[in-house]
Design a protein around this nucleic acid. Structure first.
Lengths: 146, 146
DNA sequence: TACGTTGTAATCAAATTAAATACATGATTA
DNA sequence: TAATCATGTATTTAATTTGATTACAACGTA
């Protein structure tokens, strides 16, 4: 199992909007860079818009960031594109048997650990911003050119 | 998306083997507590055996822990049942367009963050043992009885 | 030799993902 | 005003994964 690539596509979209801020980032343009179809991009753009991360208007070509890129974390994107529900990174088997000591207590015992693990993962995403990614992309490009 | 319940079922199995150490933990017995079918249990038991966490023999009823429960972490179980591959908790969109600055650098930029996030999650699992879970189950049971 | 257990392969329905098509709605411009 | 281009959204499709289920071979013991 893997977390949907909607998340990394979302990050790609935002980083590209930022680095292309002088140009027009239409869904078709973004789709070209991501290498997928514009419909998927528009679907994700809709989620990013709903989360207040970008500004888009029907009929008007191009999306803009709704905040400074240093104020958009990867966690914001992750939540926006809805890839993992709260406390549901791990699925827990349902209906363990209540007549068994373990069966009737395992869920309560294990759930806090799973939540803590999920939060630890999400915290890392919260410490990285779109600005960080955009700058790193520029940095990596410089290294390639040399 | 969610990580397969094979993981929590694996933890359930190990905790039950530990708490039922005086009895015989056959796949049918374990399946009753988990509330699933014995085949799934045997499949997971096979993975736990392969990882050196339990001892089982064809034809002989019952599984035993292969190590002290204080030496079996949830991370051991998680790796044993193969629910998430290394560095693949997040799926990254493939084939971004190389003619775009972002397209040709996004993977290298984002992969380290994703790996760090995954490791942070796994580290939490590595800090909890089957003994911890077993003791917590007994503890929670005591609270219920009062 | 029976019987019960583990080990394993194969099949099935349900859910999720990403690609693709189609079309309504909004804004610009010729 | 009509044509064009963009966004927004619903629907369909194939591929993949999950968990349930059936079937049966291999192993041990009574």
């Amino acid at each position: 199992m893997s977390i949907s690539s909607r998340f990394t596509v979302g990050v790609h979209i935002l980083a590209l909007i930022e680095l292309n801020k002088e140009g027009i980032s239409s869904s078709e343009f973004l789709a070209g860079s991501v290498n997928t179809n514009p419909t998927l991009i528009r679907k994700i753009m809709g989620m990013l818009k709903k989360a207040g991360l970008i500004e888009v208007q029907p009929g008007i070509a191009g999306a803009k960031l709704a905040k400074e890129p240093s104020y958009i974390t990867l966690l914001n994107v992750y939540k926006a594109v809805d890839v993992v529900q709260e406390k549901e990174l791990f699925s827990v088997h349902e209906n363990p048997h209540p007549d068994c000591l373990v069966g009737r207590n395992i869920q309560d015992s294990i759930t806090p650990v799973l939540s803590t693990a999920q939060f630890a993962m999400e915290k890392v995403l919260g410490n990285v911003t779109i600005e960080d990614i955009a700058k790193d992309i520029v940095e990596k490009e410089k290294l390639k050119i040399q």
